[in-house]
Write a protein that binds this DNA or RNA. Sequence first.
DNA 1: TGTGAATAATTGTACTATACAACTATTGAT
DNA 2: ATCAATAGTTGTATAGTACAATTATTCACA
Lengths: 175, 175
Amino acid sequence: MYSTIIHIKEVVDLKIHEQAWELREMTRKLARNLSLLDRDRASCCGVTLAQCHAIVEIGRLSEATPSILAATLRLDRSTVTRLTDSLVEQGYILRAQDPGDRRSLTLSLTEKGRRFFEATEDSMNGFFRSLIERIPENDRKIFLSSLGSIVEILEKGKCGCFDLDTPLTGQTEGG
Amino acid sequence: MYSTIIHIKEVVDLKIHEQAWELREMTRKLARNLSLLDRDRASCCGVTLAQCHAIVEIGRLSEATPSILAATLRLDRSTVTRLTDSLVEQGYILRAQDPGDRRSLTLSLTEKGRRFFEATEDSMNGFFRSLIERIPENDRKIFLSSLGSIVEILEKGKCGCFDLDTPLTGQTEGG
DNA sequence: TGTGAATAATTGTACTATACAACTATTGAT
DNA sequence: ATCAATAGTTGTATAGTACAATTATTCACA
């Protein structure tokens, strides 16, 4: 049925097929575990996951407005309104009017918020450090750059709906 | 203030610190993008994300019961009840009584469910294949094994609450 | 063989997370 | 001056989820 050339190609395909499967399973587990970790961490500290993400983003952004935060977290602005409502109420952030544009609000961390932010950053960084330490030093560069290229593809491809008829292959050629 | 030895150590620390940061950021992006991808894919096909996960798990498990599904998806059994309710209603799965144990239910895919499952598997596998193809062939082994060890640590460490006082370092020694 | 603990699933309730549409207030372009 | 664009809020709806209480069944064992 198949020529020898096809046959060889199929062996190669099988290998990459298995690698793709491994990647799929591992990223699935990774995502799930990170989300559980995130949830645990947030719930330990009296804030919800979404609140925690918002605090961290506000802490990182030099100028945060609800709209910028919405774009960064990829949330609807109404969602951000309610999220920041709760954070203001719980004393993590301040919401002040922008004197230059009275439509705009400026979000910033309170002292409590900053403490939370810094503790979270330290804790997360320490945790990821403990993860990277498990990878042999010589492999780290390859690992990180490979992961980086996968993330890059995912970020680029995020626009399109990934439906069953268009399996995305070859859509991310442009640099 | 610091001796030379400490100084050298700090240079090394800085490097690993940066690597840890890269890992943190990339896994964060990875998780977010995968979840967006998942959501798109599910919503394209008229099922919700949770439904999609359930269909895929039922398709993979040879014997599925609500309890097993709950354990696999790490959901509460009540959540699984409602999830399977909707899937039965939409014709993706069958829910039959186990003749051996009348407390138990057996979940299986209908023809429609199986078609969905297979299309999803093919599509996902194709997509991950397109991802793995972007990584130089010689790096794939290192990449996958590194990713594997990180996932392994995450899976092992999932029991404990990751709070701000116990940064998890050195908790995952046992093989 | 009867009883109580364990197990499987469901229902009631509540909450987080989220989006979309409609709205108000403000700014900016012409 | 007016009208489109922008920033944010509110009303409403839904997915996703958990926990506690409940029902039905099985199982261990005395």
